[in-house]
Amino acid sequence: MAGFASTIFMPLTGLLAERLGWRGALLALAAIHGAVTIPLHAMAVRHPRPAGAAPADPARREHPGRRAVAHAAMRDTRFWILTATFTAHGLATSTMTVHLIGYLISRGHPTTFAATTAGLLGVLSVTGRLVLTAARRRLPVTTIVGAVYATQAAAMLAMPCSPPPAPARSLA
């Protein structure tokens, strides 16, 4: 469900920034954030256990084999290659997402369009997870990950080639 947060809040942020300016939008979003998260935090946080007390649920205790598996992974080169790859991918995706709104505005799109387009990334993220979960039944994970990375790279490289929006025509 977190993927849908950007679908709601990116367009809302664009609309608020357009109407209230960036400072007013920031204050409005802070008020919304506090109104939602403070009560949820108050309901969800439990009192801490006394120091040294073991968890009441035996399933929450650490399994003795987990430490050995973690140590084996840390010594495996493939683990570090995957770690570096996923870190680089996450960094590239985050950078692109952060700069997408500014890029679209610099190409001549209105702020609300740019924010809504960036917000649609959340819908695409959730949709992609559903499609990839279904694809795992027929394709190896390595093929799926390679296809996702290649598609994202092609989309990013195609962005500068897209034409700017046509000038708005008056209806008069």
Rank of each mutant, 00 (worst) to 15 (best):
R46N: 03
A155T: 07
L16Y: 00
T142E: 14
R66K: 05
H89G: 12
L104G: 00
V45H: 06
R23K: 15
H71C: 09
L139V: 01
L104F: 00
R66P: 01
G52H: 12
P110C: 08
T111L: 15
L26T: 04
T87L: 02
A150C: 12
A118L: 04
A25K: 02
P165M: 04
T7A: 15
R49S: 13
H71L: 14
P110R: 03
H63L: 09
S125M: 14
A68H: 12
H71R: 13
H99P: 04
R75S: 15
H71G: 02
T93K: 02
Y149V: 03
G24Q: 13
P167V: 00
A54E: 15
A172Q: 05
G21H: 11
W22L: 01
T37E: 06
A56K: 05
T111S: 03
V123C: 13
I32S: 04
G52F: 10
P163A: 15
R19T: 02
H41P: 00
L124Q: 11
D57I: 10
A44Q: 11
V141S: 08
S94P: 01
M43Q: 04
F79N: 09
H47N: 11
A166R: 15
A114N: 01
T127Q: 04
R136Y: 03
G34L: 14
H71I: 11
A51F: 06
R67T: 14
V145F: 11
A166E: 15
A56R: 12
W22I: 02
Q152T: 07
A150F: 11
P163E: 03
G3E: 00
H99R: 07
